[in-house]
């Protein structure tokens, strides 16, 4: 009888990690694009904010799909629960902060 090995990580299949390399290049490109929009262009403040928040959301998706194994794993319920809790915390933080700080705006 084969004994239970009890290790979490199987050795990765060999091969060039194209996904990660593309993810890295895209992340860098988006970061510099955001920097250029904020510093290089002189757009009105709310336009700048909208654009860089949009870029941030794309950046977050790239992280999820390219680096954070969101489509992998045997148990999708883990992924779904994790995503739901993440969205909850992000919402609490952003909406809560806006609500709290509203009187100073």
């Amino acid at each position: 009888m084969q004994e239970h090995k009890n290790t979490a990580v199987e050795s990765e299949p060999a091969g060039f990690p194209w996904k990660q390399v593309i993810g890295l290049i895209l992340s860098l490109a988006l970061t510099f694009l955001a920097l250029w929009i904020a510093v290089g262009l002189s757009l009105p403040v709310h336009v700048t904010l909208t654009l860089i928040v949009g870029l941030a959301v794309i950046q977050a998706l790239i992280q999820l799909f390219m680096f954070m194994h969101v489509l992998e794993g045997t148990d999708t319920s883990h992924q779904i629960l994790g995503l739901i809790f993440g969205i909850f915390v992000a919402f609490a933080m952003v909406a809560g902060t806006l609500w709290i700080m509203y009187f100073t705006l």
């Binding site: 915390v89 609490a92 933080m93 809560g96 709290i100 009187f103």
Partner: peptide
């Protein structure tokens, strides 16, 4: 994750 403001109730929130 929903209680953090109670550390600064007196900062003048609504």
């Amino acid at each position: 994750f929903l209680t953090w403001l109670h550390h600064f109730f007196t900062m003048g929130n609504t």
